[in-house]
Computed example of a mutant assay.
Amino acid sequence: MSAPMQRMAVYCASNEGARPEYLACARTLGTLMAQRGLTVVYGGGRVGLMGALADAALAAGGEVIGVMPHGLVQREVAHHGLTSLRVVGSMHERKAMIVELSDAFITLPGGLGTLEEFFETWTWAQLGVHQKPIGLFDVEGYWSPLVALLDHVDAEGFLRGNPREWLVVSDEASSMLTRLQTFHAPTVRRWLRLGET
Rank of each mutant, 00 (worst) to 15 (best):
residue 98 I to G: 06
residue 13 A to M: 05
residue 67 V to L: 12
residue 28 T to P: 00
residue 162 N to L: 05
residue 90 S to T: 14
residue 10 V to A: 06
residue 73 V to A: 05
residue 107 T to D: 07
residue 161 G to T: 03
residue 94 R to A: 05
residue 22 Y to T: 07
residue 112 L to G: 06
residue 10 V to F: 07
residue 75 R to K: 13
residue 157 G to M: 00
residue 40 V to K: 03
residue 3 A to P: 13
residue 84 S to N: 14
residue 78 A to Y: 03
residue 134 I to S: 08
residue 176 M to P: 13
residue 39 T to W: 04
residue 138 D to N: 15
residue 15 N to S: 14
residue 54 A to V: 01
residue 176 M to I: 09
residue 158 F to W: 04
residue 31 T to C: 08
residue 111 G to N: 00
residue 52 A to H: 12
residue 135 G to L: 06
residue 13 A to W: 03
residue 131 Q to D: 05
residue 134 I to F: 12
residue 104 A to I: 04
residue 100 E to P: 08
residue 136 L to W: 05
residue 120 E to R: 09
residue 164 R to H: 08
residue 37 G to I: 00
residue 120 E to F: 13
residue 33 M to F: 07
residue 11 Y to Q: 11
residue 134 I to A: 10
residue 3 A to E: 15
residue 176 M to Y: 10
residue 157 G to D: 02
residue 126 Q to P: 10
residue 131 Q to E: 12
residue 175 S to P: 00
residue 134 I to C: 14
residue 22 Y to M: 06
residue 98 I to R: 00
residue 113 G to E: 02
residue 175 S to A: 14
residue 72 L to R: 02
residue 43 G to S: 01
residue 123 T to E: 04
residue 63 E to L: 13
residue 11 Y to E: 01
residue 195 G to C: 05
residue 71 G to D: 10
residue 13 A to Y: 01
residue 160 R to N: 09
residue 65 I to A: 07
residue 173 A to G: 09
residue 196 E to M: 06
residue 119 F to D: 11
residue 92 H to R: 15
residue 62 G to K: 05
residue 44 G to D: 03
residue 19 R to W: 09
residue 130 H to W: 05
residue 96 A to Y: 01
residue 31 T to N: 07
residue 160 R to E: 14
residue 22 Y to E: 01
residue 47 V to W: 14
residue 23 L to N: 13
residue 26 A to V: 02
residue 115 L to A: 13
residue 189 R to I: 12
residue 187 T to Q: 14
residue 44 G to K: 10
residue 11 Y to V: 02
residue 186 P to G: 00
residue 44 G to M: 07
residue 150 L to M: 15
residue 163 P to E: 01
residue 69 P to K: 09
residue 93 E to C: 04
residue 61 G to T: 12
residue 127 L to I: 11
residue 74 Q to P: 00
residue 6 Q to T: 15
residue 70 H to R: 15
residue 41 V to E: 02
residue 165 E to G: 11
residue 129 V to L: 10
residue 7 R to Y: 09
residue 128 G to C: 06
residue 176 M to H: 06
residue 36 R to I: 11
residue 75 R to E: 11
residue 184 H to C: 11
residue 133 P to L: 04
residue 166 W to G: 08
residue 61 G to H: 09
residue 163 P to D: 00
residue 197 T to L: 13
residue 165 E to H: 05
residue 106 I to M: 10
residue 120 E to W: 11
residue 63 E to A: 14
residue 86 R to N: 13
residue 74 Q to W: 04
residue 42 Y to W: 00
residue 193 R to V: 05
residue 60 A to H: 03
residue 43 G to P: 09
residue 16 E to N: 13
residue 152 H to C: 08
residue 91 M to Q: 08
residue 67 V to M: 06
residue 17 G to V: 01
residue 47 V to I: 15
residue 129 V to R: 08
residue 20 P to D: 06
residue 119 F to R: 11
residue 77 V to W: 12
residue 29 L to M: 13
residue 147 V to S: 09
residue 181 Q to Y: 02
residue 143 W to V: 10
residue 89 G to R: 03
residue 7 R to T: 07
residue 43 G to W: 01
residue 36 R to K: 08
residue 158 F to T: 00
residue 27 R to S: 14
residue 71 G to I: 12
residue 154 D to A: 14
residue 52 A to G: 08
residue 116 E to P: 06
residue 76 E to I: 01
residue 3 A to Y: 13
residue 103 D to S: 04
residue 191 W to E: 05
residue 146 L to V: 15
residue 168 V to S: 07
residue 25 C to D: 12
residue 40 V to A: 03
residue 124 W to F: 15
residue 69 P to E: 01
residue 78 A to V: 09
residue 137 F to E: 12
residue 51 G to D: 03
